[in-house]
Design a protein around this nucleic acid. Structure first.
Lengths: 267, 267
DNA sequence: CACGAATCGATCATATACAATCAGATGCAA
DNA sequence: TTGCATCTGATTGTATATGATCGATTCGTG
């Protein structure tokens, strides 16, 4: 691997995770410790990363405008391994050539990584998901029309006259704020509105919810359990927590979080 | 294998992978190391690739860290100073709080830079323009629904039922393939279609066309001169070339290309 | 404060990439 | 064909990058 490649990969990782350890890079780059240190130091001299003991850190100030493409600045970093495991399992539900809908959110964002090789028709209301799909895959991407809401990073039309009405997806992949016996719960009315629109445009609803979501309650019910066909969660879920869903006839998939999920995938 | 073949193959590979090592090329070209180095150096002298230790790299920055999908791969780099000067002048036509439409294209993309401080309602069919606006400004951004066409980087709905119908812009900013006494000309049917839709949603049409466009002809007329209210071009345009537009009652603005326009703006 | 563990920078031998050079191969024109 | 120009591949010496080692420093913990 060329020096330049290592440098860009390090920058990419630092950008995604805002911090990387020398140890992580050791595995990911396949270079020696000395070389990695040298790389980090070089990048630090150039001001592209900040050198910290044991690794490198993003240099970007906290208040930088929202990053397009990877912009869930806050929640992006929580439960990453769980989310990746769930995303991997969820991606296996997809059959080639199919038409799917992806609702915006950090969990569904993780799905994109596993869609690189697919040949799908994808509708998503998430700007970052569309951006990443555009950059990393050859899938056909459709956006509903509307205003981009910055906080949620979704495109939502205030009008009835919505392109979304012309789309039909075999499956809808969605995250949630909370998931329990009442169904899918959300905390933001805008997200409820967006999700409700998507629910009308598909048959199978696949909810991607890491185990923490099963203990999370909120004030708004998007839809009841009867509308859900599959739930993908991680092995942090207690079996008894899942019974209520199984009893409702929902297929429950428990993804095993592997070592590797903690590390970002290489180019 | 001929020198020319090697060169184009190298360029293709660099384009695809954004970086190639001499070793890779060794296998792929079946030429000797010395020849490959010479090839790379030749291409580097011509500015078509960047020479790096161990291989070659794409001239265009390897990955725009925050902006996904900004890939006007070819035309992005031509007439940059002219485009910036035009964009600066065009931005001055905008009044605060206004509602505008920006058609996709490299010239209009340059406009975004000058919109950072504005507070506008912006509709654009260009994914990269939306992405950059999202990242660098606080304007309200609306997208028409539809499929993202990768080559043109625009969102276009194949349906009548289009969110775009709910938008009205005071001004439409558009580039063009060619501009002459027949009006706005384009070379790509998809772009004609997109542009036609936008033309219906505004009153003032502002065409941003660097002077080379005034000598460019093509096969498809998007609209005649009567629909154009303002043309912004650069000082490379000959005065007599502009007479036909002035005679049609169009306001013609000639932007002066300054030193500074040649330099990319720093982050 | 003291201890071990992790991380660091420096050093050095090795590996790799480089430009320069030259001889042979190839293409083209007379 | 000969002669000329150009391209190509091998070789060489040099510059640079890499990885292993080692002592010094820092960190976390008791």
């Amino acid at each position: 691997m060329l020096e330049r490649e290592r440098h860009s990969l390090i920058l990419k990782l630092v950008e995604e995770r805002s911090i990387v350890s020398v140890g992580d890079l050791l595995d990911l780059l396949g270079a020696s410790e000395a070389t990695i240190r040298r790389d980090i130091n070089t990048l630090a001299e150039r001001g592209e990363v900040k050198r910290i003991r044991g690794g490198a850190e993003a240099v970007r100030p906290r208040h930088q405008p929202h990053l397009v493409g990877m912009p869930f600045s806050l929640s992006q970093d929580i439960s990453v391994p769980q989310k990746r495991a769930i995303a991997r399992a969820a991606a296996e539900l997809i059959t080639p050539g199919e038409s799917i809908i992806i609702n915006g959110g950090t969990t569904t964002f993780a799905l994109v990584e596993f869609l690189a090789e697919h040949d799908l028709d994808i509708l998503t209301n998430s700007f970052p998901i569309a951006a990443k799909l555009l950059a990393t895959s050859r899938n056909r991407i459709t956006l509903p029309g509307g205003t981009i809401f910055r906080e949620q990073n979704i495109v939502l039309s205030p009008f009835d006259n919505d392109t979304i009405e012309n789309f039909w997806g075999n499956k809808l992949f969605t995250g949630c704020y909370g998931l329990n016996r009442f169904g899918i719960m959300e905390a933001d009315p805008l997200i409820v509105q967006a999700q409700t629109k998507l629910l009308k445009r598909t048959e199978d609803v696949i909810v991607m919810a890491d185990s923490s979501k099963l203990r999370q309650k909120s004030s708004m019910i998007v839809t009841g359990l009867e509308r859900i066909s599959t739930i993908v969660t991680d092995d942090g879920a207690k079996p008894e927590e899942l019974d209520v869903f199984k009893a409702a006839g929902i297929k429950v998939i428990v993804a095993t979080v592997s070592e590797e999920d903690g590390l970002q995938k290489l180019a």
